[in-house]
């Protein structure tokens, strides 16, 4: 029962979703839209597991006064404050909500927090990757053989071709960069995509048919 019910549910859900794809009928479309809503609801509950995990992790560090526990406090306080503002202040800045989200002209609405905390932090974290990618590229792309040289040249042309200095050096450089992206690069990506697609289909079939059981975890 502990494995049979989940596997049966997996099999039925999988087959129903494959079959409905090939039947363009209002009932089949209704099954798809309704099941999508179900999956959204079920997946939303999985967030509870994530929130519990992060709370336990940082909570334990604070209670044990582990090294850097103050940062854990920052994470937990930020999470609780943002969640309270979002849950009681709403996501629409123009709608009325339980919690006022501005004092005088100063707004601390969820969308304001998103625009002024999450966006700068996220964008800056990704932007510093530019430095690390450049240094990693220097170390790994040194033209040791024919293949590495091709990779290096393609990367260099695309990078130079996408900035104004590229067209200043040679006006055709941006066109060559675009050609590299549109023709040989796309051909290689298509070839790789075929492999990924066949692998995805094989894995999905294995899950539906119960051959792949890793998701069931250990035990009976």
């Amino acid at each position: 029962m502990k494995q049979g019910i989940p596997r049966l549910l997996c099999l039925v859900a999988g087959i129903v979703m494959i079959v409905q794809f090939f039947i363009p009928h209002p009932i089949s479309e209704k099954i798809f839209s309704e099941s999508l809503r179900w999956v959204r609801i079920i997946s939303a509950f999985a967030l509870v597991l994530g929130v519990r995990s992060i709370t336990v992790h940082h909570g334990t560090r604070i209670i044990r006064k582990s090294s850097g526990w103050g940062y854990s406090l920052v994470a937990l306080v930020a999470m609780v404050v943002t969640a309270v503002i979002g849950l009681f202040g709403g996501v629409d800045p123009h709608a009325t909500a339980l919690l006022p989200t501005s004092i005088g002209g100063f707004s601390f609405h969820l969308q304001v927090l998103y625009a002024n905390l999450m966006v700068p932090l996220g964008a800056t974290m990704f932007s510093i990757l530019a430095f690390y990618m450049a240094s990693a590229a220097y170390r790994s792309f040194r033209a040791r053989n024919k293949e590495a040289t091709v990779l290096l040249v393609a990367a260099f042309i695309v990078m130079i071709g996408m900035v104004p200095i590229g067209s200043a050096i040679w006006p055709k450089l941006p066109d060559i960069a675009q050609w590299l992206l549109n023709v040989p690069s796309m051909a290689a990506k298509r070839g790789i995509l075929f492999g990924i697609a066949l692998g995805s289909v094989a894995t999905s079939l294995k899950i539906i048919l119960g051959i792949e059981r890793g998701w069931l975890g250990g035990g009976k």
Partner: peptide, 15 residues
Amino acid sequence: HLYVGVSVGYMIAIY
């Protein structure tokens, strides 16, 4: 850590 906390809190509200 601020980024992690705000992101999770934001996700809670959005969900």
